[in-house]
Design a protein around this nucleic acid. Structure first.
Lengths: 99, 99
DNA sequence: TTATTAACTTTGTATTACAAAGTACTTTTT
DNA sequence: AAAAAGTACTTTGTAATACAAAGTTAATAA
């Protein structure tokens, strides 16, 4: 038997970062508030996780406006997409080994 | 869009506990050393994670012998199986939403 | 009798998670 | 014009986790 977790990515161990990535894979881009409401987290907590994803270059931030209101959006980078898919693959292998 | 992480189980957020459960779903029972080698973790670390799984009644411990040598084995409980499958389902839904 | 193995527990440190409050800037409401 | 509210944070503080390393106990093998 082979180590079932060796290809899992530490960064995606967190439920919230998993949720952010998952949402951004489906949505192209989302802003702070949408993510906050979707994942039901506090500002500070979300900001921390977004920071960690950005520091790993898995997402990128775009500060813009809607009319005159600030609107910060987040989207996955190429690297983020690659790493996340890799992680999902590892999860899938683990799951299929079981079912 | 619905919160993609609301059905994920906090206990299974950890890579190592995920690995333990995954191994025990496939193997019926495994002992301390087999798990340790499979998951490539230190004694203390593994013991802690096994404890947490046991406290949640997701695994049960059986202290036995092979000949005269002690042999502690671990296996998933019904509750553990149910909760873990639930978690995997939530993961699968998340993944399929993406791919 | 010394060394080794199994399965831990204890100790200590570093990292992480999270909530809550604070901040800066703008916009809407009164 | 003043007050309230919204956006997107940062800061602060605390509690929980993760993990390695060393210590422990009891048995067995050399």
């Amino acid at each position: 038997m082979k180590n079932p977790i060796e290809n899992l990515n530490k960064v995606f161990e967190s439920r919230i970062r998993l949720g952010v990535m998952s949402a951004l894979m489906v949505n192209e881009e989302m802003n702070f508030n949408d993510l906050k409401q979707l994942l039901e987290v506090t500002d500070g907590n979300l900001a921390t996780h977004l920071n960690m994803l950005e520091e790993n270059s898995y997402i990128k931030v775009h500060k813009g406006f809607i009319g005159k209101k600030t609107n910060t959006t987040y989207s996955v980078t190429k690297a983020g997409e690659k790493s996340f898919k890799n992680h999902l693959n590892a999860l899938e292998k683990m799951i299929h080994n079981i079912e």
